[in-house]
Amino acid sequence: MNRILAKTLLRPVVWVIYAALAAGLLYGIGYLVQLNGPTYFAQAILDGLRLGFVYALIALGYTMVYGIVRLINFAHGDVFMVGAFASYYAVARYGWSFVPAILFAMVICLLLNIVIERVAYKPLREAPRIASLITAIGVSFFLESFTALRFAFSADYITYKRPFEVTVWKFWGLSITNATVIIVGVTLALVLGLQYVIRRTKIGKAMRATSLDKSAARLMGINVDGVITFTFALGAALAGAAGTLYAIAFPQIWTFMGIMPGLKAFTAAVLGGIGSVPGAFVGSLLMGTVDVLVVSFLPLGSRLRDLFAFLVLIVVFLVKPTGIFGEPQVEKV
């Protein structure tokens, strides 16, 4: 009797709770949609995804370096800033078009990051990991302050001159610019190229082996130092491209612009499960969307956007402590 009573009474309660949760979620989305019209909502999502694509390019550099040497490379955001400035000089000073400019930015960042790796991280490879974290912070400070000097980039805000005219296309009230198309296209191409390199080439195989077990990889005849340098270079090239695309999307650059996007991209990589390339991609898209949704819908959203970005991180951690795509952590003795 008791059991039947429990079954008949409790199960509906559970389903009511589930229904209420689902209804709440749907109502929330519906509320946002009707608040300023569906076009506004769709536009916000679109802008968020565009920002997310740029974050993804930065996040990939973080996650690859972390996957190989377990280093939170705080200087990566500043390499991204150098990329934006390199393409600015290519476009505004030398009048280059988009493709050479972005290639130029990528090459400059690649060379810069190789130098950074040689000077600041390589000598500390056998030292405790915290030592290279501190040098990463030091390199980050150095890049920010050095480029802010008067004879370098100067500490002023600089208006970025886009390498092409912006045209706006309208689809059902949604405005899509050619900048958006280029950002999404370039990012997708680079991410697919990266996946190809990691999954299909010999050096990619070496990278995966090094990230699994450095000493075993060395025993197998892999040039571990070379692989690490290659990883830094690859990440930096993506950061250079990201810098160019970010400046095209938000055409105002200055030498401290790398801090927040860098931090958010890294957070996005962690959100997705660090060390995983698809995770970094998904995490970045989520981060960008949350960023733009907060700005478009919350009162005072533009002032509180950072607060919500990290709130999302902490909420995801509470539910899944190793990120969305992260494997559960196994402690071994």
């Binding site: 377990r70 190793t322 990120g323």
Partner: peptide
């Protein structure tokens, strides 16, 4: 220096 406790990601758990 506490190196062990720094180890912590999903990937690194099996490596090092």
């Amino acid at each position: 220096v506490p190196n062990r406790s720094l180890r912590g990601s999903a990937v690194s758990a099996s490596s090092e």
